[in-house]
Design a protein around this nucleic acid. Structure first.
Length: 592
RNA sequence: GGGGCCGUAGCUCAAUUGGUUAGAGUACCGGACUGUCGAUCCGGGGGUUGAGGGUUCAAGUCCCUUCGGCCUCGCCA
C-alpha cells in the first residue's frame, strides 16, 4: 500500500504516529526557504502537510515546486497544530503531518479550472475535462449518494427473495415507443440489433419462466431529444413480480422508498404514500406529475365565462374548450403589467395558449381590463370560486382542455417557484393511478398505448374496450416526486387473448405483432402467471435526493444535449473497413 | 424540426453611441517571507474577442452564415 491512512482520517488521537499519505495537492502555501504547507486531498478529505527545512533541505526544495493537482506521497509524523492554529473548517483541522519524505508520483498540467473554486466554469469545459470536474466535492458527494442508493435498493430486494437477473443489451427493435439506438449485425447483412429502451419483454418472460421476483439495475437507451432531466442512456431500477396485484407493487415500493430515503438521507417518510387518480390530478393540477409541495390548484370557471360578455372566453366555451385559472395568493403586486402581458403570456404561449387573462382582487372586487365584461354577480362568483382575497392575482387560460392543462400546470410550477411556496429540500412523493389505457392520436387516426401495449385493462372497464376504448382505465401507476415522474409501472396482460385484443385496439396487426414480439405472445401461451412490475428512474432519484435539478450532476460521464460525449468524442466516424464489414455505406460523406 | 439565452486571457467576468495600446479578479511564471490555511507582499508573461464573410475611415460592439454549450416546445409506449 502506498498509504497508511486516507486524507480524511487522522485526528488528534493519532498524534505522534508515523504515517504515509498519498493524494493530490489541493493547494500550497509557500513561506520561503524554510516552510511550506500543502493541503493534500483524496476523496476522503484534506490533510495539511508541513515541510520544514531545518532538517531536510532536499525535501523542502522539492516541496516548494509542488503545484495544484500534482500527485504525491509523503511520510511524516502526526502532530497537534497548537491551540491557536486549529482549522475548524477541516475535519482533520486539529492535526498536521510534518513530512520527512516526499515522493512525486506525477506532475499535473495547470488544471483547466479550479477544483475548489467558487465559480463553476461553463458546462462544455466541465464535460471535456470530466476527469477534473469529478474531483470536485459536489460531484464526489453525488457519486457517493448514487452508490449508497443502489446498495440500499439491492439490500431491500435481496432481503425479499428477489433475484437480480441480467437481460440482453443487444435485442430486437420493437414498434412504438421511443426511437431505438440500432447496432448493425456483421453476420446478418442488413439486420440490426436495438439497444433496450427497457427490459420490459424479457422481464415478463422471466415471470412466465417462474422467476417470480426479479429485479435489475438496468441501463436503458432512448434515441430522443434530451432535457435537463433526460439522458439518452439512463438507469432504471427494474422489477417484476408474479402472483401479485396492483396494491402489492404499490406497497412494496412504498417500503422501498421509505427504506431508501431513510438509508441515504435519514428522512422519515410517511407510508403508505398518498394515491391520486389520473382524472383527479389532471383536473386539479393539469398534469399527471404534479408537484404537491404547494397548492395553487386549478379552478374551472367555465360556467361563469360562458355567461359573461367576454367574447374570448365565450367562444372558447362554445367550441367545447375550457376556461381555467389559478389564484396566485397575494401576488397582485409581485407581477408588473409588463411581466403579465409579455413574460407570462409568452410563457403560457410555449404550451399553446393564445393568451393569458388576469384580474387582481382589490376591495372585494375584480380589477382588470376585462372586468367590465363580467357583471357584479359574476365577479363575486369568480372571487368565491377561486377563493379570492384582496391582494390576490387571478390568472386564466381559455383553450381546449389539453392546452389549458399544459399551460396552467407549467404556470403553476413557475409561480410556486417564484413565489417560494415550498421548501426546496422537501421530499414529496405520491402515486397516480388509473391512467387511461389508450389515448387517441389525432395525426395517425388511431389509439396509442398510454403506458405500453402490455398493460392490463382495468377489469371493471372490460366492456368499454369495444364500445369506448378512450374511457378504459389501465391497471397502471406512476410514482411522482416533487413534480418528476420517478417510477412507472403496471399490471401486465398474462392472457394471450387479452393481449391480442389490445394489439387490435392499438391497430398493431396480428402479423406485425407476431413478427415483432411473437416471442412474448408465444411465451404467454405456455402458462403465464398474473404479474406486475414497475421501473424507477435511478438517475432522477439521485438527482432529487441530491437536491439537484440537472441529471448530468449525478451521472459520472454524461452526454450533451446533442448526445455527444465531449470527453471521448463519441459519437465518431469509424474506419472504412469497419463499415465494409457491416456492408454499410454513408451518404454524403464526400461533401467534406 | 421550432423558440430563447450564451461564446472576450487557463478560468470567471468587464469594455460607454461603433472610436486610443481590449481591462479586473483568480490561475500561471519569477522573487520575498518560519505558522499559513481563499496566505500575504513585489514583479512578470498571457488575447485569431468560437469560426468565416460583409458594412464602415474605424467592429468585441452592427448585419449574414456557421460551429459549440445550455434552457425549452414538439418528441420521450
Amino acid at each position: 500500500m502506498l498509504r497508511t491512512h486516507t486524507c480524511g482520517k487522522l485526528r488528534r488521537a493519532d498524534e505522534g504516529q508515523t504515517v504515509t499519505l498519498s493524494g493530490w495537492v489541493n493547494s500550497y502555501r509557500d513561506h520561503g526557504e524554510n516552510l511550506v504547507f500543502v493541503d493534500l486531498r483524496d476523496r476522503y478529505g484534506l490533510t495539511q502537510v508541513v515541510f520544514n527545512t531545518e532538517e531536510d533541505s532536499e525535501i523542502d526544495e522539492l516541496a516548494r515546486k509542488l503545484r495544484r493537482e500534482d500527485v504525491i506521497n509523503i511520510e511524516g509524523v502526526v502532530r497537534y497544530r497548537g491551540d491557536d492554529l486549529v482549522n475548524p473548517r477541516l475535519e482533520t483541522g486539529e492535526i498536521e503531518v510534518r513530512a520527512h519524505s516526499l515522493k512525486v508520483f506525477s506532475r499535473s498540467l495547470t488544471p483547466p479550472f479550479e477544483i475548489d473554486g467558487t465559480e463553476l466554469p461553463n458546462e462544455e469545459l466541465r464535460l471535456k475535462y470530466r476527469f477534473v470536474d469529478l474531483r470536485r466535492a459536489p460531484l464526489q458527494e453525488n457519486m457517493v449518494l448514487r452508490h449508497k442508493l443502489t446498495q440500499a435498493v439491492r439490500g431491500y430486494f435481496n432481503d425479499r427473495e428477489f433475484l437480480e437477473i441480467e437481460t440482453p443489451i443487444l435485442g430486437r427493435s420493437t414498434p412504438e415507443g421511443a426511437r431505438d439506438y440500432l447496432v448493425p449485425s456483421r453476420v446478418h447483412h442488413g439486420a440490426f440489433y436495438a439497444l433496450p429502451q427497457s427490459p420490459q419483454i424479457y422481464k415478463q418472460i422471466l415471470m412466465v419462466s417462474g422467476y417470480d421476483r426479479y429485479y435489475q439495475i438496468a441501463r436503458c437507451f432512448r434515441d430522443e431529444d434530451l432535457r435537463a432531466d433526460r439522458q439518452p442512456e439512463f438507469t432504471q431500477i427494474d422489477l417484476e413480480m408474479a402472483f401479485v396485484e396492483r396494491d402489492d407493487i404499490l406497497g412494496l415500493i412504498d417500503g422501498l422508498v421509505s427504506h431508501v430515503v431513510k438509508e441515504v438521507k435519514d428522512i422519515d417518510l410517511q407510508t403508505p404514500l398518498p394515491r391520486y387518480t389520473y382524472a383527479d390530478v389532471m383536473e386539479r393540477y393539469g398534469t399527471d406529475k404534479p408537484d404537491l409541495r404547494f397548492g395553487l390548484e386549478l379552478v374551472d370557471i367555465g360556467e361563469v365565462a360562458a355567461a359573461s360578455d367576454f367574447g374570448v372566453f365565450k367562444s372558447v366555451i362554445e367550441k367545447g374548450g375550457r376556461v381555467r385559472g389559478i389564484n396566485a395568493k397575494g401576488a397582485a403586486e409581485k407581477y408588473s403589467r409588463r411581466l403579465l402581458d409579455k413574460d407570462l403570456k409568452d410563457f403560457v404561449g410555449e404550451y399553446g395558449a393564445k393568451g393569458l387573462a388576469y384580474m387582481k382582487v382589490a376591495g372585494g372586487k375584480l380589477e382588470s381590463t376585462i372586468a367590465k365584461f363580467f357583471s357584479e354577480e359574476q365577479q363575486q362568483q369568480i372571487i368565491q370560486m377561486m377563493n379570492g382575497e384582496d391582494g390576490d392575482l387571478l390568472l386564466f387560460v381559455a383553450d381546449d382542455a389539453p392546452v389549458t392543462s399544459a399551460a396552467l400546470a407549467a404556470l403553476r410550477n413557475r409561480l410556486g417557484r417564484e413565489l417560494e411556496l415550498y421548501d426546496p429540500a422537501e421530499f414529496c412523493a405520491l402515486w397516480v393511478v388509473d391512467f387511461p389505457l389508450v389515448t387517441w392520436n389525432e395525426d395517425e387516426q388511431r389509439y396509442d398505448a398510454e403506458h405500453h401495449p402490455f398493460c392490463e385493462p382495468n377489469s371493471e372497464d372490460r366492456e368499454l374496450l369495444n364500445t369506448d376504448p378512450g374511457k378504459v382505465r389501465a391497471d397502471s401507476y406512476d410514482l411522482v416526486i416533487n413534480g418528476y415522474e420517478a417510477a412507472s409501472g403496471s399490471v401486465r396482460i398474462h392472457d394471450s387473448e387479452v393481449q391480442q385484443t389490445v394489439f387490435d385496439l392499438l391497430n398493431i396487426k396480428a402479423e406485425e405483432a407476431e413478427e415483432r414480439f411473437g416471442f412474448l405472445l408465444e411465451a404467454l401461451r405456455y402458462g403465464a402467471p398474473p404479474h406486475a412490475g414497475i421501473a424507477l428512474g435511478l438517475d432522477r432519484w439521485v438527482m432529487l435526493l441530491a437536491g439537484n435539478d440537472n441529471i448530468r450532476e449525478v451521472v459520472a460521464f454524461p452526454k450533451t444535449q446533442r448526445a455527444s460525449d465531449l470527453l471521448s468524442g463519441a459519437p465518431a466516424k469509424v474506419d472504412e473497413h469497419q463499415l465494409k464489414d457491416l456492408r454499410i455505406e454513408i451518404e454524403g460523406l464526400d461533401e467534406e
